[in-house]
Design a protein around this nucleic acid. Structure first.
Length: 827
RNA sequence: GCCGAAGUGGCGGAAUUGGCAGACGCGCUGGACUCAAAAUCCAGUGAGGCUCAAACCUCGUGUGGGUUCGACCCCCACCUUCGGCACCA
């Protein structure tokens, strides 16, 4: 063995060997358990960043671990390759987006290879390749056939910087674009949508079954879906126009003192027709519409409204109440009309007080009488009905059902569930995406491109000007086509699909990446799926993770797969920060993975990033911490060299005779380390503590060989070294492979069975008992294992510390925790 | 405002879930090796008190209470930080 740890030579050597031997290629094997380990595929921005390094290091530990555990491990990598940066780069540098993207992919692929991640590169996919987006388009057509892809005009989010529309999920924070943080505007446009709302219930109901998902991700999805149960009740205006409302509190219907309609509601014009208030209402509506959507929907925006001059009739008590228009009612939720119950809804309360509308109490707590005029805030809790006709006296829970039955009887309403979730807007007015496979024909209307004409290829000779229209629209050759149905002249859809569509099914393609007949075969998908461990950033908690679930459910309904949920276990890794901030160019705190690999090697980079923090937490980058990990690997190397020189000539496989105390301790440490590392990887994902256990083992081995003069029990050292290499292999694959091979051990370290610990090795003859007096540690006692409780108590009582503390007082109580602790309670 | 997560040495973090707080690593201090430095190795390292030294004692896991023989861990109230949602009827 070389005296020096030459990481560069070692890493290159083994990466080449693994590649030429196809070490990580995998196929289906019946009768062997499978493990699908998946990291979120990256956008090919050009360079790996530390977040990627962290993501893929975590995945690789698991992939290598489960391989050693005897699983068929599917561990693929690919590229989420459509998207705006390619177009922006094209504009800036005059490079075609395709070239820019493929160059970036080549660059990042070679970086990943330098990391030594165990991917099956034969399964690599790129969402911008026609062999992939052909199937994205195919899936779109399946959605279309099922009525799950449709076109409609809607008031949609528009990012003026990206010059395209966005899905609701892509508007974040205070109404800014998820990509570029530009403030999003609203536009009325005709667009393509996926009917994700049809799946709202299933997306919600399955959440509790996802026991391997972090609670917070599930909560975020639950909030996003925003299910609320209530009733739809149709009020009527005096003139007879239907005014349906959605309410979660039908029990408060006798407390309605006014109605509110959203300013942009189409009924507004009808209501004010011929009324003296008409002009005032119109000018109010204009004012609200001019207001920024974001400002208008903020919770702290002042509630404002005007009376329309029209009245509605409460269908339950026949009462006539005024209809108002107000900014706090949104057209997009429920029916866009709200029944105003100021006594029992805080928003209605504020509005009513401002405009002097009556506040009528219809729900009362058990022992207090509320008075509308005296309330300072709405009473929104449950209680008993008052002033509510035949329902008076009912508890509100019961009344909800009773009122619903009543309106059903009257034929003016029914129970209804409402969702916050909106349909997914998927069309984008941009070039670098999968073309939507649709043709518009003057005679036949919207016509899907027949499957045998897929893919609709993305033309490459395109000029870029972000104009708010897809650049494809300017390509006459692309636009002009013939109708697949009637053969007449037709025009192609020029919008492309949201890149989140492409990433909603890539995990299925990995299971069968070369299939030319189908996006994937059901057989292969059912073999590998669901993903056993998915790893990625928390930023996808709603977006990608909900879309992917939706796609999988649709595929299930289409009979393409035999499972509804794609990801059994989800690990959301924390950010990599430096100086307390997320690494970013603008902050100037970026650490380049290339630099770290050049200076210390991939093994050190991987080890540090896994050691510095548990995976779910944010990780603060530390150059000194990297040094520490580099030192550790050097220590491992020197230790191996020393063992090679001193022990290799006297190796023995098996135990002979009884071990010395030091040998026994090393043996025990070896097995406790195996136990610890196995549990930390498999059950807790605590790679940091697994690594610290390995550091302890190295320290113990070093101490042992420094003191071992006779070398009469070399098998203990051999066992310790082999176990160390095997347990370290998933974290630092190159150095362990090199040492394993230098010692002439069989095959590749990565193809060995994961070591099993021997419980017998962990058994101690003697255990240290902590002795507490009144709960405070006062002494320790070494006793033989299996000592009787009575004998232990005697020994404890005999301790000088105990008699000293006793000093005339009595022992009140003696708590004994077997093999651990005795607490003497003195009083 | 609502929901959720987190607060432990100089720093990153341990404590396998109610039983020795601070594992492991970084940093720092002292020592060995060296002409010197780097590298490496050894020892020490929560705060305070007492002591020549050791022994020993007190305090200590965001704050204040509580439960318990015993609390970083459980309960109640609060503070701070970070995320998500936010006029959703």
């Amino acid at each position: 063995m070389h005296q020096k740890y030459s990481f560069k030579a070692i890493e290159e050597k083994w990466q080449n060997t693994w590649e030429s031997q196809g070490s990580y290629k995998v196929s289906e094997v019946s009768g062997k358990p499978k493990f699908y380990c998946l990291e979120m595929f990256p956008y090919p921005s050009g360079k790996l960043h530390m977040g990627h390094v962290r993501n893929y290091s975590i995945g690789d530990v698991l992939a290598r671990f489960y391989r050693m555990k005897g699983y068929q491990v599917l561990h693929p990598m690919g590229w989420d390759a459509f998207g705006l940066p390619a177009e922006n780069a094209a504009l800036k540098n005059n490079i075609p987006p395709a070239k820019w993207t493929w160059d970036n992919i080549a660059n990042m692929r070679s970086q990943l290879k330098r990391m030594g991640i165990s991917y099956d590169w034969d399964r690599e996919v790129a969402s911008c390749h026609p062999s992939y987006y052909k199937w994205t388009q195919w899936l779109f057509l399946q959605f279309f056939k099922k009525g799950l892809a449709y076109r409609k005009e809607a008031n949609v989010n528009w990012c003026p910087s990206c010059q395209t529309v966005l899905a609701n999920e892509q508007v974040v924070g205070a109404g800014v674009c998820e990509r570029c943080s530009t403030r999003v505007e609203k536009k009325n446009l005709e667009q393509w949508f996926f009917k994700i709302t049809d799946y709202a219930d299933r997306l919600l109901d399955n959440l509790p079954k996802l026991t391997g998902w972090p609670e917070r991700v599930k909560v975020m999805q639950e909030n996003w879906i925003g299910r609320s149960e209530g009733a739809r009740v149709v009020f009527r205006s005096e003139e007879g126009a239907e005014l349906p409302v959605f309410t979660t509190r039908p029990d408060t219907i006798f407390g309605v003192t006014y109605m509110v309609i959203a300013p942009e509601h189409p009924l507004v014009e009808k209501l004010i027709a011929g009324k003296p208030e008409a002009e005032a209402v119109r000018s109010f509506v204009r004012k609200v519409m001019d207001q920024d959507e974001i400002a208008r929907t903020a919770a702290d925006t002042e509630k404002e409204g005007v009376f329309t001059g029209a009245y509605a009739i409460n269908p339950l008590n026949g009462e006539k109440v005024p209809i108002w228009v107000a900014n706090y009612v949104l057209l997009g939720y429920g029916t866009g009309i709200v029944m105003g119950v100021p006594a029992h809804d805080q928003r209605d309360f504020e509005f009513a007080r401002k405009y002097g509308l009556p506040v009528r109490v219809v729900i009362s707590p058990e022992d207090v009488e509320l008075k509308g005029e005296e309330l300072t805030e709405a009473f929104a809790a449950e209680g008993y009905l008052v002033n509510s006709g035949e329902f008076t006296g009912m508890p509100s829970q019961e009344a909800i059902g009773a009122v619903i039955r009543k309106v059903e009887e009257l034929g003016i309403g029914q129970a209804q569930v409402n969702y916050r979730l909106r349909d997914w807007l998927i069309s984008r007015q941009r070039y670098w995406g999968a073309p939507i496979p649709i043709v518009y024909c003057e005679h036949c209307g919207i016509v899907p491109v027949p499957v045998d004409q897929l893919p609709v290829l993305l033309p490459e000779d395109v000029r870029f000007k972000p104009t708010g229209q897809s650049p494809l629209a300017e390509l006459a050759d692309f636009v002009a086509t013939t109708c697949p149905t009637c053969g007449g002249p037709a025009r192609r859809e020029t919008d492309t699909m949201d890149t989140f569509v492409c990433s909603s099914w890539y995990f299925l393609r990995y299971t069968d990446p070369l299939n030319e007949q189908m996006p994937f075969s059901r057989e292969k998908a059912d073999y590998w799926m669901p993903v056993d461990q998915y790893i990625g950033g928390i930023e996808h908690a709603i977006l990608h993770l909900m879309y992917a679930r939706f796609f999988t459910m649709v595929c299930y309904d289409l009979g393409l797969v035999g499972f509804e949920e794609p990801f059994t276990n989800l690990l959301t890794q924390g950010m990599v920060t430096k100086d307390g901030f997320k690494m970013s160019k603008s902050k100037g705190n970026v650490v380049d993975p290339n630099y770290i690999i050049d200076a210390y090697g991939a093994d050190t980079a991987r080890l540090f990033i896994l050691f510095a923090a548990p995976p779910e937490k944010d990780l603060e980058w530390s150059d000194q911490g990297v040094e520490g990990c580099y030192r550790f690997l050097n220590r491992v190397w020197r230790l191996a060299v020393e063992i090679y020189e001193k022990y290799l000539p006297v190796w023995q496989d098996a135990a002979t005779g009884a071990l010395s105390p030091a040998g026994l301790e090393l043996h025990r440490k070896t097995h406790s380390t195996i136990k610890r590392v196995s549990e930390d990887i498999q059950e807790r994902f605590n790679f940091n503590t697994a690594i610290s256990a390995l550091m302890e083992l190295v320290n113990t081995i070093a101490k042992y060989i420094a003191e071992d003069q006779e070398r009469s029990e070399p098998w203990v050292v051999r066992e310790a070294l082999q176990s160390l290499l095997l347990c370290l292999a998933p974290f630092a694959p190159h150095i362990t492979e090199e040492i394993w091979s230098a010692f002439g051990f069989d095959g590749s370290v990565h193809e060995q069975n994961w070591p099993e610990f021997d419980p017998a090795a962990l058994v101690l003859d003697e255990v240290e008992i902590v002795v507490q007096i009144n709960g405070k540690v006062r002494d320790r006692l070494l006793v033989r294992k299996g000592i009787s409780e009575a004998e232990l108590e005697e020994k404890v009582k005999a301790l000088p510390k105990v008699s000293e503390a006793l000093n005339g007082k009595t022992i009140r109580k003696l708590i004994v925790v077997p093999e651990k602790l005795v607490n003497v309670v003195i009083g």
